[in-house]
Amino acid sequence: MGDIERESTGPHRFVEAVDGIRMVMLTTLSGSEPHARPMAVQETDDDGVVWLFAEHGSDKVEQIRRSPQVGLVYVDGGDYVSATGRAEVVTDVARKRELWNPFAEAWLQCEPEDDKAVLLRVEVTGAELWEAPDPVSRVLGAAKTLVLRRPPGVGDNETVVVR
């Protein structure tokens, strides 16, 4: 049970890895300090662009306007994805209507045409993926760790260059 490290290029692997994961931790810079908060993913395009709704004037929106470099962290069971990219604030009403849903309406308490609702468009530039071993392998790995006194393997790891 050895760890596997590999590298791939292009958005396909990233898009495949995050497919179906609805929540992400978005990290922005607040001055020189990182600040993370959970966000609902509205869509991930085939080219690795992630869309999120936010409230105009919120801290995260202002932080992105000052410093567009962001991080996204996804967790799904034992699988993890950490992505980096550049975010921009989008006010396109047609795009907001396309992505609008009851959750966005409940959270933002407005309609998609309202200036209060904005989109965050995150163009992912790279990602790192970890796929944890299945539960049986994890238990066996933990036992092996105790006997051999070596750190356990963390599973497969892949670096993805999206752009």
Rank of each mutant, 00 (worst) to 15 (best):
A127S: 05
G141E: 00
E111W: 04
A143K: 09
E113G: 15
R149V: 15
R121A: 10
E128Y: 00
L119K: 11
E131F: 00
K144W: 08
V124K: 09
L148C: 12
T125M: 10
Q109I: 13
C110D: 11
V139W: 08
D114V: 09
A143G: 07
G126W: 09
R138H: 04
T145P: 02
R138I: 14
E123P: 00
L119R: 12
T145F: 11
L140T: 06
K144H: 06
L129I: 12
L120Y: 12
A143F: 14
V136I: 14
R138K: 13
G141V: 04
V124G: 03
L148V: 15
D114R: 10
L120I: 15
V139T: 14
G141Q: 05
L140N: 03
R121P: 03
E113C: 05
A132Q: 06
A143E: 02
P112K: 12
E113L: 05
V139D: 01
V122G: 04
E111C: 05
C110W: 07
L146F: 14
V118P: 09
A142L: 15
A142F: 15
G141M: 07
V122H: 02
V136H: 06
G126A: 13
L146H: 03
V139N: 00
D114L: 03
V118Y: 10
E123N: 11
V124F: 05
L120P: 12
P135H: 08
A132N: 10
G126R: 08
K116Y: 11
V139P: 04
S137D: 04
G141D: 02
K116A: 06
D134G: 12
R149E: 12
E111I: 03
L146S: 06
R149D: 13
V124P: 03
P133C: 03
L129S: 03
S137K: 07
A117E: 06
R150F: 10
V118E: 08
L108G: 09
A142K: 07
R149N: 14
P112S: 12
D115K: 13
L119Y: 10
V118L: 02
E123K: 12
G126C: 01
E113N: 12
G126Q: 06
L120C: 13
A127V: 05
L108R: 10
A142V: 15
V124I: 09
G141H: 04
V139Q: 05
V124D: 06
E111T: 15
G126F: 01
V122T: 06
V118H: 12
R149T: 14
P135Y: 08
D114Q: 07
R121D: 04
V139Y: 13
V118Q: 11
E123F: 05
G126S: 11
D134T: 08
P135S: 08
